[in-house]
Write a protein that binds this DNA or RNA. Sequence first.
DNA 1: CTAGATTTGTGAAACATTTCACATAAGCCC
DNA 2: GGGCTTATGTGAAATGTTTCACAAATCTAG
Lengths: 204, 204
Amino acid sequence: MRKIAESTVRRLSLYLRFLEEFEHRGIETVSSEALAARGGTTSAQVRKDLSFFGSFGKRGLGYSVLELVGKLRGILGLGRHYRVAMIGAGKIGSALVQYRGFKARGFEIVHIFDTDPAKIGREWNGLTVRDVKQMAAEFERLPVDIAVIVTPAEAAQAVADRVVKLGITAILNFAPAQLTVPEDVVVKTVNLALELEALSYALT
Amino acid sequence: MRKIAESTVRRLSLYLRFLEEFEHRGIETVSSEALAARGGTTSAQVRKDLSFFGSFGKRGLGYSVLELVGKLRGILGLGRHYRVAMIGAGKIGSALVQYRGFKARGFEIVHIFDTDPAKIGREWNGLTVRDVKQMAAEFERLPVDIAVIVTPAEAAQAVADRVVKLGITAILNFAPAQLTVPEDVVVKTVNLALELEALSYALT
DNA sequence: CTAGATTTGTGAAACATTTCACATAAGCCC
DNA sequence: GGGCTTATGTGAAATGTTTCACAAATCTAG
């Protein structure tokens, strides 16, 4: 497939959000102009973004909300089911486990690991927190597609190395650390420090 | 000042992180090459990024770690102190309040608001959760620079409108909603759904 | 069926960011 | 000091992204 810019993919996600909103309100058809207005971009941008993947609209009329929702879900790979392992049973992990957006997008958390003996063995949203040392065995028992790293910064790289060695190719990283991984592994990092500093810079 | 790309600012934040790491390890001098290697970019990129703000290196030698840390902190506006109001006393808010990175960057949470009567009046990390209705009065008593929105998506826009009306010009938004604000207000949105979908797309 | 009004899809132009490549400066060694 | 090495700073080139502008398609009304 042609290489698509990250910024384009993020906008597609936004469009999907707005389309779901329109669908909920019973709107059947939407123009690139209307979608752009809702998302703070331009109609040309919307059309260009969509055109990378096909022609979904009708000239003179616009896009069918229902159809476009389906297309975008397909493009973004939201049709399928992903099994997720969470590594780190701390505060952020706890907030994430209850985040409904995971399940809504087909991401199911099936393992939780930690190194803290005080946490190991505890029940967490129907799952037992396991020792990180049992990761290999647990992955064998129930393989996963994605690892979510929610450890302190110091531990993050070691955890990443470990899950990569166990065959994981997708990581969502919340630790404030820059992870180094092989080329074929996809990492998305959510780094609050970067956001704070970008905000701080904007206030200069 | 010349307009600087968001991507540049984010890289500067990363460089700062690495430099602090080097400083901690007692390294006194660093080359653009070394900094690039640590951050997964190129030496030319590092030099170009820095060159927007001045000439901080010595030819043939590199950059003084200590000096560059200071310069970057200055550039990013991390020298000063910001007062922060958190709106929404839920799970994510709770995790954020304990996030040490806030204080480390001079962001001090001085107010917490919610609409839920069960939460109003409770103590939270030394602060009393107040009713959102008291926001105007509380801001008058103790003004703030930044609002952090941690409400459900449905409430986020209304809250944004409210804080903007009270004179806030910087918002950090964790609600999965696209906020519409006047031009002079800076918004940074951390949207987990977008990250998930970008990850999902990458796995297609 | 024709004329007029919309709105898409897309090359081409404009703009932005990254990479290249090299002159220039500084340190080091003899 | 002179020659060699290293590494910065920066115009220019290459690459990437967004905006423009318009032909083509579809709908509506008479």
